[in-house]
Simulated assay, not measured.
Amino acid sequence: MADVFTWAPTVANASGNATLRTRTAQFGDGYAQKAADGINGRSSTFSLQFIGDAAKITAILAFLDAHAGATSFLWTPPLREQLLFTCEAYTEPTKDGNVYTMTATFNQSFAIS
């Protein structure tokens, strides 16, 4: 079973994108026919921001480093069910007083690796 990412991102500066994969057959008269591509034709990517004290941000960094960008983990995006993701890129934390800020990019995956 995959580990679960439990930390909540901030609402500000968080965004997500969904990509729907299709195949297109282009015909000579300008007509095109499209069809969904595969059983996992929809994939999501989220850019997330986390703000917190040193303990919270250190725990997030440890979780992401332990998964090394290659091992999938479970996370629940807004208005969706729990899905598998990997995180291959995140920013190093910045400090403002006793508060740290970092961002991470979560890419949906379809198999536990």
Rank of each mutant, 00 (worst) to 15 (best):
A2G: 00
D3W: 14
D3P: 08
D3A: 13
F5M: 11
W7Y: 08
P9W: 05
P9T: 01
A12Q: 07
A12D: 15
N13L: 09
N13T: 10
N17P: 00
A18K: 08
R21I: 02
T22N: 02
T22H: 07
T22K: 06
R23W: 02
A25H: 13
Q26S: 13
F27S: 01
F27G: 06
F27K: 04
F27M: 03
F27Y: 14
G30W: 09
K34D: 10
D37C: 00
G38K: 04
G41W: 04
R42I: 11
R42G: 00
S44Y: 14
F46G: 04
S47G: 05
Q49I: 00
Q49R: 07
Q49L: 12
I51R: 15
A54F: 06
A54G: 05
A55Y: 01
A55C: 00
K56R: 12
I57A: 01
A59E: 11
L61M: 15
F63S: 05
D65P: 04
A66E: 11
H67W: 11
H67K: 10
A68Y: 05
G69E: 04
G69M: 07
A70Q: 14
A70D: 08
A70T: 15
T71K: 11
F73R: 08
L74C: 08
W75S: 09
P77R: 09
P77F: 10
P78E: 04
P78S: 06
P78R: 08
R80D: 07
F85T: 06
T86Q: 10
Y90S: 05
T91I: 02
T91S: 15
E92N: 09
T94D: 00
T94V: 09
K95S: 14
D96S: 10
G97V: 14
V99A: 06
T101Q: 15
M102E: 01
T105S: 11
F110E: 15
F110G: 13
A111E: 14
I112S: 06
S113D: 14
